[in-house]
Write a protein that binds this DNA or RNA. Structure first.
Lengths: 184, 184
DNA sequence: TTCATTTTTTGAACGGTGTTCATAATGGCG
DNA sequence: CGCCATTATGAACACCGTTCAAAAAATGAA
């Protein structure tokens, strides 16, 4: 069902509909719905694919053997780049709230975990005295912060008088935060 | 049209509809639409009210004469508190994308600006050598970061093995970031 | 008050949405 | 071929935001 994400390259998510999608792939609306269970779960499947794309890009960016700190910078830059290149797709990934139904598959969970592990590994290299639980929390803190900058940036809700670049904001965030954190 | 936000206290935004709202306030759907122009603009008006609520709470929290750094902490805590107390209302404020139509009114803009000014004032007290443009960008960076933590926290998308508290994440973020930033 | 004019409100209608389900088409295989 | 199980359909349902001619209400002048 990559047709979903292909649609989202050019049009926002709220323009997409089960019926349009059905016409696109040559199926009846009802067919799609008893294949995925519901429209919401279809979106969930598309989001799973999106997350795979992101995971792969971030994984690639992490393989280089630079310093832990610049690796974190590359990580965040890649994350921002994806959000900027595929804003509709990226937004859908986070704005879709699964409705009391099933949780997302745990192979998805594990893939997310692996990404956080990369961050935590960098944090370990930056401060080998740090406790594992701290690195766990800090990895979430950093990622959520970067995520917030990306989100408000692509929605143009930073309310800046002069347009500020998300790149430099992320860079400043990481530089200052890490410079303090890595010394306890 | 505070009935909108009253509804959002107990039910998510996607459960709300023009027709339900019309029944609630005793008007016909069509009446509401040629009063606000469209459903989207009605939501915009409700969001304006939400932003006023937030602005007032943050403003109150800033009047105390504590140190600049703890004032920033109070600021972020109040922001998080509102998001946690009114998650649907808060989400709608940021997930509603205005559709190619009008911009949000500029009295709204100025109210947002005033909030950022408070942050920038704290930043100035923390580092009087800082340049104004830097404070401008850093205020956005801090706010976007705090916002990201709030957003992922109330959506429960932090993917933490043990539930981590958003409060401590925000506190750590501000502490470490500012401790580095305030010395250039 | 009465009547004409402007403003406000309505409700039916339109095209769209996700979802259900009896029915129909299809595929596999003795 | 005939039978069964799987798969796909499309009409129907209840809802959505939006439009607009007509009706109701408010206004003001005579």
């Amino acid at each position: 069902m990559s047709q979903v994400n292909r649609f989202l390259q050019s049009e926002p998510a709220h323009q997409l509909s089960l019926r349009k999608l059905a016409k696109m792939v040559g199926y009846s609306p009802g067919t799609l719905i008893n294949l995925f269970g519901s429209y919401s779960r279809l979106i969930l499947a598309a989001n799973a694919q999106t997350l795979d794309q992101i995971a792969q890009r971030l994984g690639d960016r992490m393989e280089q053997d630079e310093s832990a700190e610049t690796r974190l910078h590359r990580f965040a830059e890649a994350y921002l780049a994806f959000a900027q290149e595929h804003p509709h797709q990226w937004r859908l990934l986070f704005e879709h709230h699964l409705d009391e139904g099933e949780e997302l598959p745990q192979w998805q969970w594990s893939r997310i975990d692996r990404l956080f592990d990369m961050i935590e590994q960098c944090l370990y290299e930056l401060n080998k005295n740090s406790r594992a639980e701290d690195r766990h929390e800090v990895s979430r803190t950093i990622w959520a912060s970067v995520h917030g900058i990306c989100a408000l940036s692509i929605d143009d809700k930073l309310f800046a008088r002069t347009t500020v670049s998300a790149e430099s904001m992320i860079s400043a965030l990481l530089t200052h935060f890490l410079s303090s954190w890595k010394q306890y």
